[in-house]
Design a binder for these strands. Structure first.
Length: 439
RNA sequence: UCCCCGGUAGCUCAAUGGUAGAGCAUGCGGCUGUUAACCGCAGGGUUGUAGGUUCGAGUCCUACCCGGGGAGCCA
């Protein structure tokens, strides 16, 4: 029996006998010549059989094997311009390992409800396959880039005793005799303790938001990577983020170019993701939005008054004014989290920035953190947060406190923008949304 | 929670208030280079649910259920 060969290595085996294992994507027959497209996880390849050469038994089997059956195939690798991908396999033997029942996802169009209901099967489709390979590359790059910079992965808890920034949007679960526990909505506070221990750390894991968000940019369960750096100020933070995101995009371009192309992504837009990213102060962002709203050329864009947070349409509009990701900096402190360091020159704004991807919106949010204990305690009180629950967090400011900064990047949003996916639910194998928890 | 759109065959969709249709999928037959192949034949329906208007409702009205898109909030 010939050696097993993955489909993506067939080019190297021209004119040699191979054994393939995989699933039947589709079959086609035209009289006495038949085609079977085999998928093995690494790629698709067309297998060809001519009745007069392979005999009636094998030819009829090829014609009968249902879509998505698992099979073993033996044959000769041939370079042929007529084959998709330029390589095909001349069939010599076909063994059906499991004959599939009628497959629900046919090679025609389907609606999102039907596809999400069959998500466990939909992941076999070629575009979903490409998208999830891009996700895997983003996840790997997101960690390995930081590891290469001397960051330590520092895992933060998923079950937490209280809200990080508020209590309204958390999933609650019973926790023995201690009452309730909540699924984390951010590892940020915990990762700050690691920063004080290791200097440069990051946490990476699932986070949960029980918000009733019903848009293509929201999931109730999503993955977030949150680096945190000691002795890093606001500008250091922005410099890190632009190097970081550029590095991730470059690696995906290098290793997943074919998948990005299959997804129809504009690769030039990704090639432009190089530092420095433009900085747009919040004040200027408001002015740009208001000028555009007054001109009437931007439909649905409502004017802003200083102090209001940017809405999704504002972010999309602003991001479209630049050819690469843009930092919107120094938001009003009132609309941001309690732990963000105020600008010493203008205490009404925070030393924070959101990174907006062109045409998409926010994918990273970050800030310098408050390192002064008295100020932090004042902010906790102003936000009506319970001092006791945050005692350990305040403690970090009692023992060698230093200026520090960090940010959080939503993995699915990064994947969505990099891959050009229209909906976040396709960037994770099993999306959790407001009205969907099956399968 | 609010606003907009939708629900008809396994799937994607048609159908002036007047006989329930097509393509794909499935089954059978044909075709030696197909690329979501093509050609012919066949089977396949409680039109989301419950009421109402009407001689007659897939179509109009009311309520509810489910899904999609968006807002708010955020990553």
């Amino acid at each position: 029996m010939p050696e097993i060969c993955p489909v993506d290595r067939l080019q190297e085996r021209a004119d040699r006998e191979v054994l393939l294992r995989g699933w039947v994507r589709t079959t086609r027959r035209k009289g006495k010549i038949g085609f079977l497209v085999l998928r093995d996880g690494t790629g698709d390849v067309q297998c060809v059989a001519v009745r007069s050469e392979v005999g009636d038994a094998l030819f009829d089997l090829l014609d009968r094997v249902p879509q998505e059956s698992s099979v073993e195939v033996e044959g000769t690798v041939r370079v042929d311009a007529r084959a998709p991908g330029g390589v095909e396999v001349g069939l010599r033997a076909l063994r059906v390992l499991h004959e599939a029942e009628p497959y629900p996802i046919t090679p025609k169009e389907h609606g999102p409800e039907f596809l999400m209901e069959h998500r466990h099967l939909w992941v076999r489709s070629s575009l979903q396959h490409a998208l999830l390979r891009v996700r895997a590359e983003v996840v790997a790059a997101a960690q390995e880039w930081l590891n290469g910079e001397g960051f330590i992965r520092y895992d933060t808890p998923i079950l937490t005793p209280c809200a990080c920034e508020g209590t309204s949007d958390l999933f609650e679960t019973k926790y023995f005799d201690l009452g309730s526990a909540f699924l984390t909505q951010s590892g940020q506070l915990y990762v700050e303790s690691g920063m004080m221990a290791f200097g440069k750390v990051y946490c990476f894991g699932p986070t949960f938001r029980s918000e009733k968000s019903k848009t293509r940019r929201h999931l109730t369960e999503f993955w977030m990577i949150e680096p945190e750096v000691a002795f890093a100020g606001f500008e250091d933070n922005l410099a890190l983020q632009e190097r970081y995101f550029s590095g991730i995009v470059r690696r995906v371009l290098e290793r997943r170019r074919a998948d990005l192309a299959a997804l129809g992504r504009d690769l030039a837009a990704l090639e432009r993701v190089t530092p420095p990213f433009p900085r747009l102060p919040y004040d200027d962002a408001v002015a740009m939005v208001n000028a555009a709203a007054a001109s009437g050329k931007e439909e649905g864009l409502t004017p802003l008054s200083w102090g209001e947070d940017l809405g999704a349409p504002h972010e999309v509009f602003l991001s479209r004014q630049f050819d690469r990701p843009v930092f919107v900096t120094r938001y009003p402190a009132k609309v941001k989290a309690f732990y963000m360091q105020p600008d010493p020159a203008r205490p009404e704004v925070a030393l924070c920035a959101d990174l907006l991807a062109p045409g998409y919106g926010e994918i990273i949010g970050g800030s310098e953190r408050i390192h002064d204990r008295a100020l932090l305690e004042r902010r906790l009180a102003e936000h009506g947060l319970p001092a006791e629950a945050f005692r350990w967090y305040v403690d970090l400011r009692r023992y060698g406190s230093v200026p520090h900064s960090g940010f959080g990047m939503g993995i699915e949003r990064a994947v969505a923008w990099i891959a050009g996916a229209t909906h976040l639910r396709e960037t994770i194998p099993f999306a959790r949304t407001l009205y969907k928890i099956y399968p």
